[in-house]
């Protein structure tokens, strides 16, 4: 279980990115973290594995206080937290396989990793993962030869190869088209349920979040302003999180377009027959 206690982050510029966030994520639960740009979603995720050092507050992974660890122990604990990034963050000039195997860096010694002599079981697992995410034939390609969706799959395989207990996922679909976005979100949620992984997923797309997660947390200006089921996300709540906006129109727009198209078609038919 992951537990955040009064977690705060103040950047040097003086703005409070996080203001005392309390949050518990039980084992195996997938949580979507929504909120406007600048609400502190990325900071929150990076404070958990301390890529960003929190200013105050604590992070607990099971019984271990992550915020109290020295650098060696921190590296060991980071292995349990797989991370997936918005722009994939693959090492562009390394091959797909090397990228996936880099998920195991925390487990192998320097020389082994330097000569790319990973244990056979590890390589085996990496191949299985590549197969699972549908990239079997691409393992020796350079990462920058792949499309966006394929790259994100490599990013996911890398994170899973860490054998993590929790995934920290930062805007996994923000650089992808709508269809690929859905596939990626589906893949992440399937992998989580297959492996009993907990996950925190930062995401802009509220509808997408509602489709794939069990719980939604709304962040606004560094504070949790909503925590509940996807169905509880009413227009009032969205306004609370994002500010004033006509939420209904966005949902009705598709319907409206269809109606307009139908009407114009009818007009034309009339013109033809008349």
């Amino acid at each position: 279980m992951l537990r955040l206690h009064r977690l705060s982050k103040q950047y040097q510029a003086g703005d409070d990115a996080l203001k005392g966030v309390d949050l518990e994520v039980p084992d195996g639960q997938v949580v979507a973290l929504i909120g406007p740009s600048g609400a502190g979603k990325s900071t929150l995720i990076r404070c958990i594995n301390r890529l960003v050092e929190p200013s105050s507050g604590q992070v607990f992974l099971d019984d271990e206080e992550v915020t109290a660890l020295g650098s060696r122990r921190l590296r060991r604990t980071r292995r349990r937290m797989g991370m997936i990034f918005q722009e994939y963050a693959l090492i562009e000039r390394l091959t797909v396989m090397e990228n996936v195997l880099s998920g195991q860096l925390g487990y192998v010694g320097f020389l082994r990793s330097y000569f790319r002599r990973f244990p056979t079981e590890t390589v085996q697992q990496a191949f299985q993962l590549l197969e699972r995410v549908g990239l079997t034939e691409h393992y020796d390609k350079r990462a920058d030869e792949l499309s966006g969706g394929q790259r994100q799959r490599v990013g996911i395989a890398r994170a899973i190869l860490q054998q993590p207990d929790i995934l920290l996922v930062d805007e996994p679909t923000a650089s992808l088209d709508p269809r690929t976005s859905r596939q990626i979100m589906r893949l992440i949620s399937e992998l989580c349920s297959e492996r009993q992984l907990a996950a925190i997923v930062n995401i802009h797309d509220v509808t997408l979040a509602q489709m794939f997660v069990a719980r939604i947390v709304g962040l606004r200006e560094g504070e949790v302003v909503f925590d509940g089921k996807p169905d509880d996300l009413t227009n009032e709540v969205l306004t609370e999180i994002y500010g004033e906006e006509d939420w209904q129109t966005a949902n009705d727009r598709t319907e409206e377009k269809e109606r307009a198209a139908k009407e114009s078609l009818e007009e034309q038919m009339k013109g033809l027959s008349g």
Partner: peptide, 8 residues
Amino acid sequence: EAVQATGA
């Protein structure tokens, strides 16, 4: 950052 996050 990504490589750091693996515990390398």
